[in-house]
Amino acid sequence: MAEPLLTVRNLRVEFPTRKGTLVAVDDISLSIAPGEVLGVVGESGAGKSMTGAAIIGLIEPPGRVASGEILLDGRRIDNLSYDEMRKIRGKEIGAIFQDPLTSLNPLYRVSRQLVETIMTHLDLTVKQARARALDLLKEVGIPAAEERLDHYPHQFSGGMRQRVVIALALCAEPRLIIADEPTTALDVSIQAQIITLLKRLCSEHQTAIMLVTHDMGVIAETADRVAVMYAGRIAEIGPVQDVIKRARHPYTEGLMGAIPTIGGRHELLTQIDGSMPRLTAIPEGCAFHPRCPQAHFKCHTVRPDLIGDASHSASCWLMERQASGSVGADAGQEGGR
């Protein structure tokens, strides 16, 4: 793998509350290489958006990065001041959010929003910036871009608005884009267009993309590698094909079985009973153990870290047994459940 563009080491995001400290992101490590799409998938509350927000320094107080480090191209960015971070945000790291209607200012023409962003980050005249804005709209596939440039956001449809948001994220040619549920608010046919667009940008500009979504189908189509998150931790991380076809963590396995597929039989779906724990009540040991069909004694008490090889690993004690090749290692303690 090429030298990673983004490295996150042991990131921990905390929210102090009156009832004690909530840990939204717990000891997460990942990296993204230039031109690579890392998918981050999980259910609501798994901490996937919070990881993205931590990377671009947009965690709302009282939330804070409690420990760990975030490196962009070898340079630490988690301890920068507000003003320093502002220079990086938009220029080095672009962001695309879920709802294209709330990420555009409804009172300004699209041209003004693009030109403003371009001139903040690049040393261009208004005229040059406007020309660049037009190029960007063309690049993201907006028809009749000359005419559309001076429209207001409400004059665009949902899919076109999301293209404008992508154009905004691309203004300063960032090397990393954090895309948080970029297609969730869109219809399938439009979603397919946006996925194609993101993939093209990624290969043409060698942009690294962190794609946060709850939709495994989108990940399968777009990402090179995927991190599955559960209750603030990475449950499994690896090449997307491996994770989908040879899931190692029981949660990933259950998640795959729970997705209805076309062509599959109309029988019952695999069901993971219960729901993800709230942040106030994360169980001891492996956070997944109350829902896990294969949980054994150790899972109730000791929290597993990622186990496996460099490319594909899972935080599950079953991996340890597979790795050591002996099922009997803690067989004596089994059978509790």
Partner: peptide, 10 residues
């Protein structure tokens, strides 16, 4: 969410 969706569909 998908895992909950599966429960409701079942």
């Amino acid at each position: 969410d998908v895992s909950v969706q599966a429960q409701i569909l079942n």
